[in-house]
Amino acid sequence: MILIITKDTEIGRSVKEHTETGNTGKVMLLFGEDISSEERFFEDGEMSSFIYLYHETGGEGGSESGVFRINRILDRYYPDLLLKSDLPETSSGDENVAEFYLKAAAKLPPHRIHILKVRGPVTDSAGKSITAYIGNVIAEGSEKEKRDIERSERDKKIRERAEKLAEEIHASESMKRQIEELVRYSRISGIDFDDMISELGREGLLPVADKKEGKKVLGELQRRICGSAV
């Protein structure tokens, strides 16, 4: 879930208008003057990215208005600018920004914390710029989520396959860990683990009577998968 916070209601309304996200489950947009960095939404374990938007009215000595990505906060904190963006950059000396950054940094890696500043009026163009940026955060986050789900499903299958063999060879806990490593490596490197097990069966090494025999089989399986059977 991408958490977007702004204390500026004008920015909040502009972003809401452009994204019409409200609360889609993937993105949570919270805006209001009273929002504090002490709020419990930072305790939410599902937060995958954090975006803080704030407003700086006017400019400092004629500086241009627009949307800026913050690259440094108070000379101490640095969001990691890995996400591609054409937004101009600037630093922030705002203590409030630092507070939100630190709260997010307690839970998130620095490349998943995004701080954007709107300097000058909150125009339609500013709203669109912010929305485009948020769109990239969402898109990149969706890809990551997809990869995480695939990995999680693969890990589940690895564990199940490992448990099955562990039972068959009366494995101890450390043997189970070893089997899981072998199953994982086989999957990644394209070795047919089931084929290897069938081979051991054809050679009369499986089934086994006890843990002692199971350990020998595990050793042989390790040799074959790890390439030391040269």
């Binding site: 990691d80 890995l82 940094a105 620095p110």
Partner: peptide, 16 residues
Amino acid sequence: IRIKHYKDLFNRQRQS
């Protein structure tokens, strides 16, 4: 981007 000490950047937690 000016920094005070490289470790403020290099040693951030959970970097990718």
